[in-house]
Amino acid sequence: MATISNAAPTTLRTARPDLAANIAPQPTRSLPEGTEVRGFALYVGLSEDKLNSNDPQISDIVNQIKHLVNRLAPAADTYAAVALAPEGTGGRDVDVVRFALGDPSAKARRQQAAAAEQDRAKSGVILDFSRGRVLLDNTPATLTFREFELLQFLVLREGRTVSRDEIIEGLWADAPAEEVPSERTIDVHVRRLRVKLAQYQDIVRTVRGIGYRFDRHADVSILHAAGPSPDRF
């Protein structure tokens, strides 16, 4: 980041002495309680390679803007900084400037974009309970509601073998008697779930004669909901 000196303003060919008189009054905006306005930041996106040979230099433009502010509000303190970025940085100039000069919203968007890109690039299984979805190599698995519930039920009991009876009692506790499945039907649900998990179907293991178990795998990421699950123990 480079600062701009307070040298006398250069007279620009495009300068408008009457500019202040042409500025329309802006509506007053309500402020958050307990805050006050102490100034403002004006981000200008303009790379040097976009200036023609007969255009004013960036430093001249900055000094002219500072001069205008001093005319409009003589009591104002002004400070100008030039945003520097690595050569070849993509994106709009004004967005690069905002990020380089520490604009909080620009930083937040950059972090969100980086997180989204990382999520897209990540392979393996993502069990996203906060959004109710399962991603296989970043592709959504087409699980039914009951299949998702069954997988979540096992994952929340990670490392413990869960019997078929326990699954029935946990997932069909409020179902009418005629809708409660048999142990054999649980096996069918698990088999269909495994088919949809494709190459990752072994994350649901069969414990012969007892039931099923989910064990932690290196290629599985679990995103829990914001609050603790009432099923977790």
Rank of each mutant, 00 (worst) to 15 (best):
G211L: 07
Q111V: 01
Y200P: 10
D174G: 06
R208D: 01
F153I: 03
D137C: 11
R71N: 13
G39T: 02
D231S: 10
A218N: 10
A116N: 03
V125G: 05
A226I: 08
N138L: 04
K50Y: 12
P74Y: 14
D231Y: 09
K107T: 03
L171V: 00
Y43W: 02
Q26T: 14
D219W: 00
P74C: 11
R29W: 04
R192L: 14
G227V: 11
L31H: 07
A225C: 06
A7L: 07
I4W: 06
N6R: 01
D137W: 12
Q112P: 01
Y212I: 06
E178I: 04
V204G: 06
D18R: 11
S47K: 10
P104M: 02
D93Y: 13
P86F: 11
V62N: 00
E87L: 15
R133V: 14
H67M: 05
Q118A: 15
D60H: 14
V220G: 00
R184F: 08
A121V: 01
R192V: 02
N52I: 02
R38E: 06
V162W: 03
A24V: 12
A173K: 08
Q26G: 06
K66M: 14
S59I: 04
D55W: 05
M1G: 06
V96H: 01
A80P: 07
G34D: 11
G88P: 07
G91L: 05
L12W: 01
A76E: 13
G209E: 10
R92Q: 10
T10Q: 09
R216I: 05
T139R: 15
L136Q: 12
L19C: 06
F233D: 10
Q112G: 03
G88Y: 08
G91P: 10
P181H: 11
L42T: 01
N54Y: 13
I65N: 08
A81P: 02
L51D: 07
P181M: 04
Q57F: 04
V207C: 04
A225M: 06
I4Q: 05
K196W: 11
T10P: 00
R109Y: 01
Q64P: 00
T3N: 10
T28A: 14
F233H: 09
F214K: 03
G90I: 02
I23P: 00
S163I: 01
N54H: 13
K50A: 11
E33G: 07
Q57E: 14
H67W: 12
L150F: 12
I203G: 11
G90P: 12
D119S: 03
L156S: 07
V180N: 04
A108F: 00
I61D: 03
A121Q: 15
A20V: 09
T185C: 05
A20S: 12
A2S: 12
T144I: 09
R120H: 07
F145K: 13
S163K: 09
E48D: 15
A106M: 00
P17V: 09
R213S: 08
T161V: 15
P86W: 11
N63I: 00
F40A: 05
L101D: 00
T161K: 04
L135Q: 12
I186V: 15
P228E: 12
G211Q: 05
N138F: 04
G124N: 05
T35R: 09
S229C: 10
A21M: 06
I168S: 03
D137K: 12
F214I: 02
V134A: 14
A115K: 13
